[in-house]
Design a binder for these strands. Sequence first.
DNA 1: GACAGAAGATATGCGCGCATATTGTATGTA
DNA 2: TACATACAATATGCGCGCATATCTTCTGTC
Lengths: 151, 151
Amino acid sequence: MTTPRPDWAAPEQSAGFLLWRVTLAWQRAMRAALARHELTHVQFVLLASLLWLESRGDPPSQQRLADFVGIDPMMASQVLRKLADRGLLVREVDPADSRARLLRLTPVGRALAAVALTDVEKADAEYFGVLGGDRADFVRSLSALSSFAQR
Amino acid sequence: MTTPRPDWAAPEQSAGFLLWRVTLAWQRAMRAALARHELTHVQFVLLASLLWLESRGDPPSQQRLADFVGIDPMMASQVLRKLADRGLLVREVDPADSRARLLRLTPVGRALAAVALTDVEKADAEYFGVLGGDRADFVRSLSALSSFAQR
DNA sequence: GACAGAAGATATGCGCGCATATTGTATGTA
DNA sequence: TACATACAATATGCGCGCATATCTTCTGTC
């Protein structure tokens, strides 16, 4: 166990490190696509998910949105406050539970989310386009890992 | 463009967001495997890569190691300084270029890298084990993305 | 030899991922 | 009613990813 292992020392030959680097590259692509909207990639995910949730039910709480997106409730709290400061959404106290904050997009926020969505979709399609026909298999593998590796 | 898109609003149905979440889960697995060695996942990658590079040539500079691993030279500089403070490696001025710092593992650092390597390998194999026979295809897809999405 | 440009290292600052602790509120049970 | 427990939100702190600026040193060309 004292001899170096080529398959670990060389990141490009390990699935884990490939995963890591590919994700970083994807995040850079997202950042580039969202830069002109003054949105970070987490801000966008929260806005887009809120758009989706709003369209089919009551306004969600911060907690519910964070669970839905799969990010840390702490992060969600901070990011949502900034988005509220920018006037993209409002955080109002839940009348049924004064601990919770209900989220509601403003018209400005709704419009921004919709426009950013098209840019992100284009960047995403371009990024994964190189996989060609293997894309379905790739996504299936990701799903298998994702369902296995629940937090 | 003002109607929500289910495939984007629901992260688990988008390849990009799947990628993101799976990578976060992998990083958590790495963190757990490395916790008892008091190593972060980036610290480990640097140590293991240094182990590999040392075994087959002259000691690399910080820049060369950062390039090899694929991380930011800035991060590498900070992390390597901490590792040097812990006595796991030494950073000596390159006699051929007084700007560069040459990296050399200490015996303690070499031993720690080797032990941590076994834990990480086990965790990694366990993590990707759920892919079963699809693992090769998955890694091939990752490689395609990786080579395409060079920084 | 003198100069401009490139490269290695560092500092600063912001956003994200996560762990921990604290406060206030909503539940359960006695 | 009183209390313990659980939960939503917040604050703090650390490590990472990255952009920008600065300083020093090397290398090119004249």
